[in-house]
Amino acid sequence: MPGADPRAGAIYDLGYRTYDGPRLGRRAAILALYTFTLRGAFGIGRRTSAKIVPLVVAAFAFIPALIQLGVAALLGSRIEIIAPWNYLGYSEVPVALFCAGVAPDIFGRDLRYRTLSLYFSRALLRSDYAIAKTAAFVTALAVLTLGPLLLLTIGNGLASDDLPGYLADHWREFPQSLAAGLVIAAVAGCGSLAIAAHAPRRAYATVGVAAWFLVTLPLAGILVEIGGEIGRFAAWFSPFDLLYGAALAIFGHTPGADSIQARADLPLFSYLLLAVAHFAAAALLILRRFQRVQA
């Protein structure tokens, strides 16, 4: 290099520039994180093997609705076995497995690979991060809990001979389905994330979430059967029994004679209150976790 002293230090201008254009700010960051997490929950934008579990499980959540609509279409008459008010009874296993399979990855990657600091050094607040991710997972779960209910109500309407008459009789099912689907998604989703956010490895998160849904289910059945006056309150703490009761309350439907809700004999609105309490507790646990976690 002519004229340059190789031992002298030099800083070269490579043309890097600081960005001084407009910034989208916090709201856009939250929205971006929400969309990214929602896509990731179904494996969109990830490798094929990450898509299998969420998509297969989601498909299973829709099968009962499709069976009901198929039967109604083939036989013409309205034989209603699978209805929006009892749908959770048919979709609880897919819902639980979706939570067990997907919820551990919502926070897990960021916690394990210590990428949280990358988020918190941006416009996002810690609570924004937790809320955006939780909202995205609840939305993903709502596809499984709300989607089939809407499919059923719309499909039943279209299959009926007298659509205006059907709407006049059944219009309530739309807001009721909406409420039930969202309550189920919110409680199951937040509860799963609260467990997953506190698990040190993915395996523990998966087992914890699965146990919360699927071990409590037979356990509550046994406790209600033999537990007497105190045991019947177990129906409040098995998430699916709780949410089935909440759905009954929303649709104003009485429980079937051999259902756990009938045997526990607790007022139906109490399930709604307990569902709200579960949601609040889970949301607080998630928020607290990310207020305290070391980024």
Partner: peptide, 18 residues
């Protein structure tokens, strides 16, 4: 599979259960 836990849960609860 690297997702043996979830695959096992699917087998137990979806296949054997439902």
């Amino acid at each position: 599979t690297s997702r043996a836990l979830v695959a096992g849960l699917l087998y137990v609860f979806l296949w054997e259960g439902t």
